[in-house]
Each structure stands twice: as C-alpha cells, then as structure tokens.
Write a protein that binds this DNA or RNA. Structure first.
Length: 819
RNA sequence: GCGGGAGUGGCGGAACGGCAGACGCGCUGGAUUCAGGUUCCAGUAGGGCGACCUGUGAGGGUUCAAAUCCCUCCUCCCGCACCA
C-alpha cells in the first residue's frame, strides 16, 4: 500500500463509509444527553461555498464530533436559506428559472459540504423554498395574523431601486440596501408588518438570560432603544388665540423649569397653525429647505442647529410661562412626539440653539444645590434642582418621579416609555419567496387562506421581472391572483407580495427537530427534546436582523403555547472573517478570493480544516496566508510520515522512556480537552504540533521506541483526539495501524492521572525577578527548596541575607525571595 | 458623542496575577541534492564580549510578583448616533 500521504486516495471513501453507517444520525429521544449545535444555514449562491463558510462550519463540525465522542446525542443539521433575490436576478439575466438554479446550486453546496467532511445528519436537510417547508412559513404568518401581530399599513417605506422591493428598517445599513448596497429611497406603499414593537420589552429582558457576545447584545439593546421618560402637554397658542395640545417627550422632566423655548420638527402637522401671519413666508421657506436636504444632510451630527421663530408661543403647564415656538430641523419627527422642550442649560443641542438665537438660559440643576451664575456649556448630568418652585432641593431622579406624578395628577402629562425599534415590514415585491397566504375580499378585507388549503404554492409560470411600481411579479399571473373569498365565495384577489426571507429563517432551527412532519410545523415532544439550540455559530452581521427576528418568532410561539422556552439560542458564537492575503475583505473585484475547492484539490480537506482551526481565535478576523496553509500541510504530512511507520509493527520490548511518553500523553489529554471546551481551536492545533514534535524527537533518538506499547498508545490517542479536526487522515491512519471500527465512534480519551511527575521545575525569583530555575522533587516544601536554592551559583553571587529575607512560596511552581 | 472590542517580535498569534513571545510562518546557517524544490538539524525580541540590562500603545497605581487587576490618556476596529 501507498506509504505517501495522498488524501485523494481515501477522503471520498471514508465520507461514503460514514454516511452509509449513519455515523452522524441524531436520534430522537435517545437516552444519551442531547446537544444541539447549529450553524447559520447558507444562502445557496451560484458561486458556491467560500472560505467564510468554512470559518463557521469547520470549527462547529469539530465541536460536534467532539461532543459525539463525549457521549452526547448530537443534532448537527444543515439546510439552505434558499429563497431570495439573487436567484431571481440570475434568472432574469440568464433565463433560468429560480427554482432550477436554486436546486442546482444546492447540489453543488451539498457536494462541497461533504467534501469538507462536515458531519451533518443528512436525513434532516431541507431548503426554505421546499413547499413542504414554506407551507409552515405561511402557517406562521397566519398564526401571527390571528394573534393580531400582522397588519397592513400604507406609509412611506424604504425602497431599494435595484432590488425593486421595500425593506425593513433593520435591513438598511447606512442608508443602503443590506444586500446590494444601493442607496434606498422613500416610497409610499401599503405593506404588511409584524408587530415586533409589541415584544420590545420581552426582547430586551431576554438578553439578560442568554450567553451571547456582549457586542451582539448591546447592538440589540441599542436597536430596541428603550427610553423612559414623560410626555408633557404644552399648550400652543395660535395667532388667533386658539390653543392646541402640543405634547413633548422628555427623559429629563427634572429640567422642566428650565424650558425657555419649544422646537418642533418641520414635518409637524401643527406647524402652520402655530405660525403668525408675518412669519408664514419665512417658516414655509425654512420647511421647504429642511425637507429637501432631508435624508442626507439631516443625518449629520456635526451640523449647526438651525431653526426659525414661528411668532407663536406655548404655555409650560408647570409654570404657565409662555415660551417661543421654533421650527428646527434637528428635531426628528419620527421619534417621540416630533416636538421637544428646549432646556439650554441642561442639553447640549438646546444650548447651541439658544446661543444662536439669543434665547435665555435658565439654570435649574446644579451639582450641589447651590445657585450657579453662568454656564460655559450645558450641564447635562443629574444633580439637585434649583429655581424649581416646590421641587427645588430634590435630586434629579427623585424629582423625575415626583414631577411625573404631579403631571399625571394635574392631567397634563404622563410617564411613558419610548422605543426606537419599528415594526418589521415583511412584504417584498419579488417572486422568489414564500407567498403571503392572504385573500383580499371586497367585503371581508384581508382573509387568511384556510389552513387545509396551505401551502399557497408559488406558480412556476411567471414573468418574474421586477417592476418599479411597487407591484410584485405575481400580480401579473391572473391564475394566481383571481380566487374566491374563503368566507363568502365572492371573487377576490390573492395577496401578491411574498414574505421577507428573514421570515423563513426565523423558525428553521425548530424544523430540524422534526423536518418531515406534514401535519404540523413540528412535533411538540421532539421540540421539547431537542430545543433550545445549545450552541449557535454564525456571523455578527445578523445581529439585528436574523437574530432579532428569530427571538421574536420564538417569543410569539411561546405565547401561543407551541413551545416551552422563549429564547431560541442559549449560547452564541460569532466567527471572525477570513480576509484576503492583503488583509482586505475578500471580493471578486479585489481578486483575493480563495476557493475551498482549489485548496482541497491541492492539499486535501484535512489540511484546509486544520488550517482554518489554526488561523486564529474563532471570533477574530484573520488573513488567509499561503505560507500559513503550507505550514499546516507540512504538519499533516509529518504526522502521516511518522505514524505510518507503525503500520505492521508489533509491540517489542519495554523501554524506560515509556513513562515519559505516558506522562506526555496524559498531559496532552488534559490540555487539549480544555482547549476544545473553550473553543480555542488555534491553540489546540498548536498542542498537537507540540505533541508530534515530542514523538518525532524521541523516535529519532531511538527508532525502537516505535515498538513500545506507550508509543503506540500515544499515537492512537493522538489520532483519536485529532479526529474531530482532521477526520479523514485520522480514520485512514487508524485503520492502517490495524484498528477496526470507525475512529469517530471511539470514546474521547480520559487522562489516567496515575502518573505524577517526580521532578518539577521551580522558578526562583529574587525580589520578583527571575534568577534561576531548579529541579526539585514534586511536592517539596519551602525548607527543602530553600536548601537547593542556597546551593545555586546564580543565587549565591547575589549575596542575599537568607535569615532576614521573606519568602513567597507556591508549591511545585515558584519561590520568590524578598530581600 | 454613546456602547462594544482590541493594541505583545519581521508576520499570524501564545500566555490572561507567578519562566513574556508557545505553535506556525518568514529569515539565517548547516546536512541531503548536479541544481531548484522537498526533507532534516541548529539559530532567530532588542542591547552588551560577558555576568547582566531593557522590553507587551503611553503614563501612574495596587501587589512579594502585572502583558494580565485599578486609574488617566492615546491609537485602531465594529455598532449606534441631532433619539430629546
């Protein structure tokens, strides 16, 4: 047989063997403890799997294989997030039906995933575009609809002119479409929304109970944007004396006595009603300009605060004082009430605005409660109230409570909680998505399709060219559109928008527990057994998209009694990116893309796997390096070349060095187990390198060690432990060494713990500085160590007075002499 | 501005109160080779002939002992941002 390392010879063979023997099958209701490890499923693009996927899937697979060896019943599934725009765009360009290209791409993905040796339970594979799956995506839409969480609304929405569809707020990154990067525009359309805002508090609260990266939690907190404050109704007085309610939202009601003006957003509906005749022209001009520069300049924080006086005043209900009303474009209409109270002394923006317009600055909070003469800048911290009538002397937080209470009792205000998060816009004007199962009846309005008629199938024969009109391609298929009302039978029209792809991916992790169920989205008992997901690995780019939506779906299902947990992913890890060799993000245009197929062709899958693990900590970005992968390939080859020499070798005579080998083996078992547990795969590979260097060295010193029991056992332990990382070469060598059965069904080695080191190296410090290292018997006490230290030349020449010195002693580790 | 994270050799990175630079790359020298590649051996933070000294973004502190903990600051990355 071949003695050279030639991965092509055995990688495919072993994968087939594993599949045929169902090594990776997750068994429902097994007595073993369960472990559900999930990776974010891929969008099956035409360009196939890239190394970015590898950075996620290889460590996850290594951990899954490790858990199996630890005796867990592991659920490690894969599927495809198959609905989406690129398939449709490809179809338009090349005239291939999205269904055809999608399923062709999936085949390619499957081939690549297997080539990488990923240990998925293939019996649970599905794509979100399978009718058997999207039937239940539609069913969940109806669940939300029936629970009052899905509704239609006509309003201005973000529209991507390239993708020709509306998008949810979460899917706009820096004013651009998250998928294609085209700047989005506002378009008025009637769209479907999910009431995610109703779950804002629950989504916030749940974050405290899950083991997720702080970064992601903080992004979600930020996005939800909860702020507690009060709404106070000022009375705006029109030119003719008419009073209008002008509510303002503030988190600093404790500064209410410092209000010296009011500012309202240019879009505010009361603007013109609160403008005096002589100011109308000026105000109109200002509003026009403000609205024109709207989307771009108004986003800038640095911009000077501008505004114009409307000529009208408002009454502060706490003081009955009249303050001027300004229109200012720094007031955001969509947040709060679109009107703010101006407190120059205690808000930076108001301070700037007041300076510019010569408005009074009234100090009502000071650090210590003493009067303050002048302010150089706004004092924005909490403090003690002054000049605040009966509330003077109170601390800010206490004052907020009392003032809110006072406003509520007096009927001109109340405590409120505001959120930044908006409802989730889920309709998309595209063909390749899950249909929204709604029928529009002239009499009954939006009626859900009866459950027994689901799924509403996507028709194949459609001109799916998207339009600029905001109408879905499905609208042009009369056979699809025209139907009858399920309630009254009158001619009605089907909803033609499809659902956001994120709706499909918001529940897929549940379907893996019961992927072939045609009676329900899943069996409750199976969900109870498998869920929640114990470990979820995926990119941070989904922080406020997929990860927020999935949590929302889970909470809705929990409230509906379908599941008994309300957080889907117990632990989350974000893998870092693989950058190009130039430290730049990989992209076709930069020409720095690495293709896994090419890498496997050149080095084999195990080298790619080991390199991806070795490249750096799981959660940090790392540049691809051709020299780097060469180094790892050398390691795999060295491992092969050393271990293959044991082929057909039997156990010979005992050798004294065996004890040292056993000691090393035991040490490595402990070290590597800890590294896998902590997902430190980069140092795990280093440990294998150290171990190999050790075995290689003693073998060179005396080739006969190969015939010792300890050496052979060390090699087998090595192979067993590296098997999760490099499954093919481990399996091949295992069999070449005469072992039977798959290495992947073996138990993860446990340290024997019987060998203690007889001698240990003790660090000798003098005044905290390293001066010597000495060998002592393990377990030696201070006195014995000190005797040896005194004999050391390096220590003796320092002339230490040992009687006066103080000693810090850590057994078997260190002695520090403080002289 | 707010929130999160990170600054360690020529490079990727270890160590996360107790030997700074594990492991790998690269580089230097040597062996093998007609040669290139491969493979193997030795060396590789800086300074000094040396014993030693200096070094983990900067400065201070806690400690017998700090890359690691605390404070002040600087730089970079990510997210949010006129949110009242």
């Amino acid at each position: 047989m071949e003695k050279e390392y030639n991965p092509k010879e055995f990688e495919e063979k072993w994968y087939k063997y594993w599949e045929e023997n169902k090594l990776f099958k997750a068994e429902d209701f097994s007595k073993k403890p369960k472990f559900y490890i999930l990776v974010m499923f891929p969008y099956p693009s035409g360009s196939g799997l890239h190394v970015g996927h590898c950075r996620n899937y290889i460590p996850a697979d290594t951990y899954a294989r490790y858990k199996r060896m630890q005796g867990f019943n592991v659920l490690h599934p894969i599927g495809y997030d198959a609905f989406g725009l690129p398939a449709e765009n490809y179809a338009i360009e090349h005239g291939v039906h999205p269904k055809e290209s999608t399923y062709k791409n999936i085949e390619n993905f499957r081939r690549q995933l297997k080539m990488l040796g990923l240990s998925y339970d293939w019996d649970r594979e599905f794509a979100t575009s399978d009718p058997e799956y999207y039937k239940w995506t539609e069913w969940f839409f109806e669940l939300l609809f029936k629970r009052g969480l899905a509704y239609q609304d006509r309003s201005f929405q973000w529209w991507c002119p390239h993708c020709k569809t509306v998008l949810a707020n979460e899917q706009i990154i820096d004013g651009k479409c998250w998928r294609c990067g085209t700047p989005v525009v506002k378009k008025e359309l009637k769209e479907w929304f999910f009431r995610i805002t109703q779950y804002a508090d629950k989504l916030l609260e749940g974050l405290d109970r899950i083991d997720w990266p702080e970064r992601i939690k903080s992004m979600q907190k930020n996005w939800i944007g909860r702020s507690e404050g009060a709404e106070i109704i000022f009375k705006g007085i029109g030119p003719d004396g008419t009073e209008y309610d002008l509510p303002v939202f503030t988190t600093r009601i404790d500064t209410i006595f410092g209000v010296t003006f009011l500012a309202i957003a240019p879009e505010h509906p009361l603007v013109m009603k609160l403008t005096r005749e002589d100011k109308v022209e000026e105000v109109k001009k200002y509003i026009e300009e403000a609205l024109r520069k709207f989307e771009t300049e108004r986003l800038s924080t640095e911009k000077e605060k501008t505004g114009v006086f409307t000529g009208c005043f408002a009454r502060n209900p706490f003081t009955n004082e009249l303050v001027p009303i300004y229109v200012g474009d720094y007031v955001v209409y969509s947040y709060g009430t679109g009107a703010v109270m101006g407190v120059p002394a205690h808000d930076e923006r108001d301070f700037q605005f007041a300076k510019k317009h010569n408005l009074p600055i009234k100090v009502v909070i000071s650090k210590d409660g003493n009067p303050v003469e002048t302010l150089e800048e706004a004092f924005t911290e909490d403090g003690i109230l002054i000049n605040s009538n009966g509330f003077s002397g109170l601390k800010s937080d206490e004052a907020r409570k009392q003032l809110t209470k006072y406003a509520e009792e007096s009927g001109f205000g109340k405590g409120v909680v505001r959120y930044k998060i908006r409802d989730w816009l889920i309709s998309r004007q595209r063909y390749w998505g899950a249909p929204i199962p709604i029928i529009h009846c002239p009499e009954h309005g939006a009626v859900p399709v009866p459950e027994e008629e689901l799924p509403v199938l996507l028709p194949d024969e459609v001109d799916f060219t998207p339009r600029d009109t905001g109408e879905s391609p499905l609208a042009n298929n009369p056979d699809f559109v025209n139907t009858t009302c399920p309630l009254c039978g009158k001619p009605s029209k089907r909803e033609t928008d499809t659902q956001d792809g994120f709706a499909c991916s918001s529940w897929y992790f549940l379907r893996y527990a019961d992927p072939h169920n045609d009676k329900a989205p899943f069996d409750k008992e199976k969900i109870k057994y498998w869920l929640p997901v114990d470990l979820y690995i995926g990119g941070a780019e989904h922080a406020v998209m997929h990860l927020l939506y999935s949590r929302f779906y889970t909470k809705v299902m929990y409230d509906a009694g379908l599941i008994d947990f309300d957080e889907p992913f117990k632990k989350l890890l974000n893998q870092g990116m693989i950058l190009g060799a130039d430290h730049q993000k990989m992209s076709k245009s930069r020409g720095n893309v690495v293709n896994p197929d090419d890498v496997i062709k050149e080095y084999g899958a195990d080298t790619l796997r080991a390199y991806i693990l070795f490249i750096g900590p799981l959660d940090t970005d790392a540049p691809w390096s051709t020299e780097g992968i060469n180094g790892v390939n050398r390691f795999i080859k060295r491992m092969w070349n050393l271990f293959i020499q044991l082929e057909n070798k039997s156990i010979g005579k005992e050798k004294p060095i065996e004890k040292e080998i056993e000691l090393m083996t035991d040490k490595m078992i402990v070290k590597i187990t800890e590294q896998v547990e902590k997902f430190k795969f980069n140092t795990m590979i280093s440990s294998f390198m150290e171990w190999l260097n050790f075995l290689s060295k003693i073998m060179q010193e005396d080739p006969e060690v190969m015939e010792t029991k300890a050496f052979r056992e060390s090699v087998l332990t090595f192979l067993t432990m590296i098997a999760p990382a490099t499954p093919f070469v481990s399996e091949e060598l295992y069999h070449r060494l005469g072992e039977t059965g798959s290495i992947h069904t073996k138990e993860w080695p446990k340290p024997k713990g019987i060998y203690k080191e007889e001698y240990v190296t003790i660090i000798v410090q003098v005044n905290g500085k390293l001066r010597d290292k000495i060998e002592v018997e393990a377990g030696s006490e201070l006195e014995d160590v000190l005797d040896l230290v005194k004999k050391s030349d390096k220590i003796a020449r320092l002339g230490i007075d040992f009687d006066k010195a103080k000693y810090i002693f850590v057994k078997d580790k260190l002695i520090n002499i403080v002289a």
